[in-house]
Design a protein around this nucleic acid. Structure first.
Length: 189
DNA sequence: TGCCCGATTAACT
DNA sequence: GTTAATCGGGCAA
C-alpha cells in the first residue's frame, strides 16, 4: 500500500508540493483517482485569492498546511485546494484534474457523463465527481473523508502556464503528468 | 449600495 | 469560436 500523505508533506514550498502531488492518489469518501494536474498559488502571486489578505472566504489559506480550501467558482462550481507551507504563507495547490480509478459508477452518476476523460478533467468536474463542496472547506487532508497516498513509481512531470487567470499569466506554475489523457487541457510541447 | 468580474463548464453557432 | 449560467468578493462612489 502506498504511503499516506501527512501534514508534514504539505509543510513545504508550494512549488515543491505541487509537482510532488502529480501521480498521488486522491480519494474522497472512497471515490477518486490519480492526480494528473494541479496549479500552485502563493500569497505573493497576484493571481492568488490570498494576494490581498485574509477574508472570510480565503481564511483557510491563512491557516496551517494540510487542510482543504474550497471555494465557489463563477457562482456555479466548487474548486478544491490543498493548503501548503508554514501557517500564514497562504499558499495552496489547486487540484485541476484526476484520472478516475475508484468509484467510477458513482462518479458517472454524479457527473451525468459516461466518458472517463470527461469525469474529472477540470477543477469543477473533480469536485462534482467527488462531491466536494463548501461544507468541506477547512477539513484536514489526512483524515476522512479525505485520503491521500503518495505516488508509487516514477512519473514525468511537465510544467506550463496556468489556466483561466488574467494576472501573472506567464508563471509556469501549472503541473501535469506528461502524456496523460485526463488533463483539462494539453500542455504545450 | 452598486457594479464588475472571476483559479469554469457546457451548450451553442 | 462564442456565450449563458449564476453569485460572492473586492473596489469605487
Amino acid at each position: 500500500m502506498a504511503k499516506r500523505l501527512n501534514q508534514a508533506f504539505f509543510r513545504r514550498s508550494v512549488h515543491e508540493v505541487a509537482p510532488d502531488l502529480i501521480g498521488a492518489m486522491l480519494l474522497f469518501d472512497g471515490v477518486g483517482g490519480r492526480i494528473v494536474e494541479v496549479e500552485a498559488y502563493h500569497h505573493t502571486d497576484p493571481a492568488a485569492h490570498s494576494f490581498r489578505g485574509a477574508t472570510s472566504r480565503n481564511a483557510v489559506m491563512f491557516g496551517p498546511p494540510g487542510y482543504a480550501y474550497v471555494y465557489r467558482s463563477y457562482g456555479i462550481h466548487w474548486c478544491v485546494n490543498f493548503v501548503c507551507e508554514p501557517k500564514g504563507s497562504a499558499s495552496a495547490v489547486l487540484i485541476r484534474a484526476i484520472e478516475p480509478t475508484t468509484g467510477l459508477v458513482v462518479m458517472r452518476r454524479r457527473r451525468g457523463v459516461a466518458d472517463l476523460r470527461l469525469l474529472c478533467s477540470g477543477p469543477g468536474r473533480v469536485c462534482e465527481a467527488l462531491r466536494i463542496t463548501q461544507a468541506h472547506n477547512g477539513l484536514a487532508l489526512d483524515e476522512p473523508p479525505f485520503a491521500l497516498f503518495a505516488r508509487t513509481g516514477e512519473v514525468e512531470v511537465i510544467a506550463g502556464p496556468r489556466i483561466g487567470i488574467t494576472k501573472a499569466v506567464e508563471k509556469p506554475w501549472r503541473y501535469g503528468l506528461k502524456g496523460s489523457r485526463f488533463l483539462s487541457k494539453p500542455f504545450k510541447a
